[in-house]
Simulated assay, not measured.
Amino acid sequence: MGGQTQAVDYAFINALGTISAAIGATPSITLPEEIKNGLDVVGNALQATGNGLDANISEGLDAVVAPCKASATDSSSMGP
């Protein structure tokens, strides 16, 4: 499976988790509390799974490395 296809699949898992958690957290929806709690837990688990899998296929740490490079450059211009 290609990286783009995996990213779409993982985003879909994350979206399902977001929807499930939102339904579980909506006070105006009349469901038994046990079901709402279950939807919330399952939704959070799906979100975590989707995010974890998406991070696993990332093509590098550009989002993390770029700010570090910028701050290193900025701190050197500050002087001793």
Rank of each mutant, 00 (worst) to 15 (best):
M1W: 13
M1E: 10
T5F: 12
A7W: 04
A7H: 13
A7I: 05
A7R: 03
Y10V: 12
N14Q: 13
N14D: 03
N14G: 06
A15H: 11
G17K: 03
T18R: 14
T18H: 08
T18L: 14
A21H: 09
A21S: 09
A22N: 04
G24W: 04
A25R: 02
A25I: 03
P27F: 02
I29L: 14
I29T: 07
T30C: 11
T30I: 11
L31H: 13
L31F: 10
E33I: 14
E33F: 08
E34C: 07
K36A: 00
N37H: 12
D40R: 04
V42E: 14
G43D: 00
N44Y: 06
L46C: 12
Q47R: 08
Q47A: 12
A48W: 06
A48Y: 05
D54E: 08
A55K: 11
A55L: 14
N56W: 08
I57C: 02
E59S: 11
D62H: 00
V64H: 01
V64L: 00
A66C: 05
A66G: 01
A70R: 02
A70C: 07
S71L: 02
S71K: 02
T73P: 15
T73N: 10
T73Y: 01
S75I: 04
S76I: 11
G79L: 06
P80Q: 02
